[in-house]
Amino acid sequence: MAKMVLKASYLALNGVDRSSWTSKIELSTEVEDKDVTTFASLGWVEILGGLKSGQLAVGFKQDVAASQLDATMWALFGEIVTFEVRLSNAAAGASNPAWTGSVLIKEWKPIAGAVGDAAEMDLTFPTSGAVVRATS
């Protein structure tokens, strides 16, 4: 089994590579569990998978220079945009799958921190629609 250290992961939002400002990427998905237990279950709980959902959590280093991270992300605030994440910034393939879909830019933190902190923010965007795993 191959082991890996995340050194050059890839994040694109709205078709634009945002990796230069990104210090954390976490894509999580889950499915609701629906209880379908009946008397015929003989005292055992039976479940089926229901609706699927996901979240894309991102850590950004802030950049308020003209046309940089803050300006471009502020323009996307409240919008549904596409995303793509990969463990490595190398091309997608069997050993470097890409996960794609859409997210709602639900929050933006133009400033967060205390005296002496790096200007950075942690954000979570809910997925909208299917998340797809591709190897090419």
Rank of each mutant, 00 (worst) to 15 (best):
M1N: 03
A2N: 03
K3A: 03
K3M: 07
M4F: 06
M4E: 04
L6H: 05
K7P: 00
S9K: 03
A12H: 10
L13S: 05
L13A: 09
L13V: 06
N14S: 09
V16T: 15
V16H: 11
D17H: 12
D17G: 14
S19Q: 09
S19E: 04
W21D: 07
K24N: 02
S28N: 11
S28V: 06
D33Y: 00
K34W: 02
D35M: 00
V36I: 13
T37C: 00
T37E: 00
T38I: 01
T38Q: 02
F39D: 02
F39A: 01
L42W: 03
G43V: 05
W44C: 11
W44M: 11
V45I: 12
G50Q: 04
Q55C: 07
L56T: 11
L56S: 15
L56G: 15
A57T: 08
G59K: 10
Q62N: 14
D63T: 01
V64L: 11
S67L: 10
S67V: 07
Q68R: 07
Q68W: 00
L69I: 13
M73Q: 10
W74R: 13
W74L: 12
A75K: 15
L76E: 03
F77N: 08
G78C: 12
G78W: 06
E79Q: 10
I80R: 10
T82H: 05
F83D: 00
F83Y: 00
E84R: 08
V85P: 02
S88Y: 02
S88D: 03
N89R: 03
A90G: 04
A91H: 05
G93D: 11
G93T: 02
A94I: 04
S95A: 13
P97T: 00
A98V: 04
A98G: 02
T100D: 01
T100E: 01
T100I: 06
S102D: 13
V103K: 11
L104W: 14
I105M: 11
I105T: 09
K106L: 06
E107Y: 11
K109Y: 14
P110W: 12
P110S: 15
I111K: 11
I111L: 12
A112L: 07
A112G: 05
A112C: 04
G113F: 08
V115L: 14
V115T: 05
V115P: 12
V115G: 08
V115K: 09
G116P: 00
G116A: 06
G116L: 08
D117L: 12
D117P: 09
A118P: 01
A118E: 08
E120A: 11
E120C: 10
E120R: 11
D122S: 10
L123P: 05
T124R: 08
T124P: 14
T124L: 14
S128H: 09
G129S: 10
G129T: 11
V131Y: 02
V131I: 14
V132S: 15
V132W: 07
R133E: 13
R133F: 12
R133V: 14
A134R: 06
T135R: 00
